[in-house]
Computed example of a mutant assay.
Amino acid sequence: MSDVMTSGEPTTKKAKRPGGRERNPEALHPGRKKTMAAMLLPSIILLIALNAYPLFYAVGQSVRDGGITGPGEFVGLENYRTALQDPAFWEAARFTLLFTVVSVFVAWVIGMGFALVLRRAFPGKSVFKVLLLLPWVVPVVVSTTSWNFMVATPSSPIPTLLRALGFGDVQILANAGTAMAIVIIFKIWGTFPFMMMMMNSALQAVDPSVEEASRLDGASRWQRVRHVILPIISKPIYIAWVLASIFTINDFPSVFLLTGGGPVNSTSTLVVFAYRLVFQDFRTGYGVAVAFLITAVLIAISIYFFRRINRAPMAN
């Protein structure tokens, strides 16, 4: 009783085994551990099989020259060598790089700007936030259909508006440059809400007193954002970048449904390129090899950003 009264909190004592040794009540009996492991083993084996079998099967496909009629003969690394020497592969890789870098960075800038705006209270803030989330919430099939309606034909609203403004007969998706721009703009439009939510959550960790101290020291709003806020939330920024990069590189429906990779493969990403090889050209081995090269790129990007995340300072 005296221990309870002096400390102000009830004390818990561990049970003692015969011989005076203390026993942790949370520790599992060795026999119980074996029983739980035996019960979990079938589920673990099933999960490994579900993930390992497709992986090893795909690896086997990538080292054969198979197609629609069968797995084909073993060719070793020939499919990977063919990919690295194929101009079409590098054309798709260049557009994938442009598509990813521009859309991720611009979407982050826009999302960061809206996140900073949403830190302030203003009338209709909740409605405004919901409206900003719509591009991310609406299914991609609906979004691409809407954008196709706006730009696909000369009679679509945007070409009609451009013609009325004196730009002539503009066929947006028939020109390589404008088609690439439309695909990138569409991806930015669908990605910035994700960036906004990530940055809005990250900004909650910024101590207002730190910003106030920098303001009293004479720092401008841009200087506070650049030298105070961004370093504090650098870890969430890197996480948002790596996630958005993975989503963008793997984004098949946005490109395929909007332009089909055209015109003349100008908007074909590596994912669309691999899809065409497997399901249109029936070059299964080559297509799977391209998919593994995409995976290698994603792993490299993830490793780079996770190293930056580990080196980034912790938010106070």
Rank of each mutant, 00 (worst) to 15 (best):
E9W: 06
T12W: 11
G20R: 14
R23F: 01
G31H: 06
K34S: 08
A37I: 07
S43E: 05
I44T: 14
I44S: 09
I44Q: 06
I44C: 09
I44K: 06
L46E: 03
L47H: 03
A52P: 05
L55Q: 08
F56A: 13
F56V: 12
Y57E: 14
V59M: 15
R64S: 02
G67T: 09
V75M: 01
G76C: 01
E78H: 03
Q85H: 12
Q85N: 11
W90M: 07
A92K: 07
A93V: 02
L98A: 10
V104N: 12
A107M: 04
V109R: 11
M112A: 11
K125R: 08
V127Q: 08
K129G: 13
K129Y: 04
V130E: 10
L134S: 04
V138S: 00
V138N: 02
P139N: 08
P139F: 12
V140K: 09
S143P: 04
F149Q: 09
S156F: 07
P159M: 11
L161N: 12
L162G: 06
R163M: 13
G168M: 12
V170H: 01
I172W: 08
A174H: 09
A179M: 15
A181L: 14
A181S: 03
K187C: 12
F192L: 14
M195Q: 05
Q204E: 05
V206F: 00
V206W: 00
E211K: 06
A213N: 08
S214Q: 11
Q223H: 05
V225H: 06
K235I: 01
P236G: 01
I237G: 01
I239S: 13
A240K: 00
V242W: 14
V242N: 02
I246P: 08
D251Y: 07
F252S: 04
F252N: 13
T259M: 01
S266P: 05
R276P: 04
V278R: 02
F279Y: 15
D281Q: 10
F282V: 07
G287E: 09
G287L: 11
A289W: 01
V290T: 01
A291L: 10
A291Y: 10
L298E: 12
I299Y: 00
R308M: 07
I309V: 05
I309P: 01
N310A: 12
A315E: 03
